[in-house]
Amino acid sequence: MPPRSDSDLARELAASAGALLLQVRGRPFADAAARQAAGDAEAQRFLAGRLGELRPGDAVLSEEAADDAVRLGADRVWIVDPLDGTREFAEPGRSDWAVHVALWERGELTAGAVAIPAEGLTLTTGEPPAVPERADGPVRLAVSRSRPPALVQDLAAALGGELVPMGSAGVKAMAVVRGQADAYVHGGGQYEWDSAAPVAVARAAGLHTSRLDGTPLRYNQPDPWLPDLLICRPELADRLLAALAELPRAAAPSRPSHGGTHG
């Protein structure tokens, strides 16, 4: 039986794409690049097929497909990242990669799911996770394990905080939902598919989400590039925004040619 609600569908698609990616990951490949390419292609093919079958009237914006301008006039647009964290996906034993599926309707994100397949976990707006109580100690900032941005390092210094390295954007955002970090601060630029589903789930869980200057995040825009992002515990939002306002802001980040995630 097809999923009854959009949240159910987001959860089913993210979890099923994740299961497919685990199968792909277990196959022999010549190198990491071949494994990454196969994961991207097969997850995209699965998600596009299921959305075409179950929501044929909806538009889709995906990292792994050409952008179709029809979405700009649509009332409903699915925003998907078939494989968030291709580098981590290709490294044996790493679990910090994800699948993102979100629905934008008439200006708002209304459903979403983030699967972390290697942990057997899918977080969804349909059953918002309960955010654990914050432990005593310094503010913990989720950050890229390979290239922690200067902005977040400066913020940690200003707050007396600590950096918590991890992989993909979705995993970092869900670390805040899961109580493994207190905030995910990103100033290096991303595309809408990098954050739409994580933001939808974070909002459903009661977290603060915004641009770094506190203004709202906007999705299904003509240019899907989003310069910056803040996801944090609501009780820390004012403190983080005030600290960010005091930091020197670097020049606008350059974007990758298409779809690369900046952690």
Rank of each mutant, 00 (worst) to 15 (best):
A43R: 02
E88P: 13
G179H: 01
F46D: 10
E133V: 12
R239A: 05
A38Y: 03
S257G: 13
P92Q: 11
E119D: 15
G170D: 00
G93Y: 04
G188R: 13
A169F: 07
I79N: 00
V114Q: 04
P148F: 11
G214I: 10
H186K: 09
L20E: 06
Q44F: 03
G188A: 08
H208G: 08
P117V: 11
W225F: 13
E127L: 04
L229S: 06
G39T: 01
I231E: 01
A69E: 15
P165Q: 03
E235H: 15
D96S: 11
K172M: 14
L103T: 04
D40H: 05
D228A: 10
Q221I: 02
R134T: 10
S257C: 03
H258G: 05
F29M: 08
A173V: 00
A245D: 15
Y184S: 04
L212T: 13
R203T: 07
L159P: 08
H100Y: 01
P222V: 06
S5R: 09
P117T: 14
R134F: 06
A59V: 09
L141E: 05
V176R: 03
D58P: 10
R71G: 03
A15D: 09
D223V: 08
L103A: 08
I79H: 01
A243L: 07
D6S: 14
E12H: 13
G137K: 10
A113S: 07
R203Q: 11
P198H: 00
V114D: 02
G73W: 03
R145Q: 14
L121G: 04
R35Y: 11
Q190L: 15
A196H: 03
G126K: 04
R94Y: 05
P3W: 11
D68M: 01
E235W: 01
R218A: 12
T124G: 12
A237Q: 04
R147N: 08
A115M: 02
S254Q: 13
R11G: 03
G263R: 15
R11P: 01
S16E: 15
G214H: 11
T122K: 01
L103S: 14
G188H: 04
R25I: 14
R50G: 11
L212Q: 06
A98P: 01
A41P: 07
E63G: 10
P216L: 09
R94N: 04
A113V: 10
L247T: 09
A252H: 13
V24P: 01
G188E: 08
A115G: 04
A173L: 00
E63N: 04
P2A: 12
I231Y: 03
V80T: 15
H262L: 05
G167E: 05
P222L: 10
M166Q: 13
E53Q: 15
P148Q: 06
L72H: 13
G189S: 07
S62K: 03
G160V: 01
G188N: 02
S62P: 07
A111K: 00
G161Y: 00
P28N: 06
V101K: 11
H100I: 00
T110L: 10
G161A: 11
G137V: 06
T125M: 01
D31E: 09
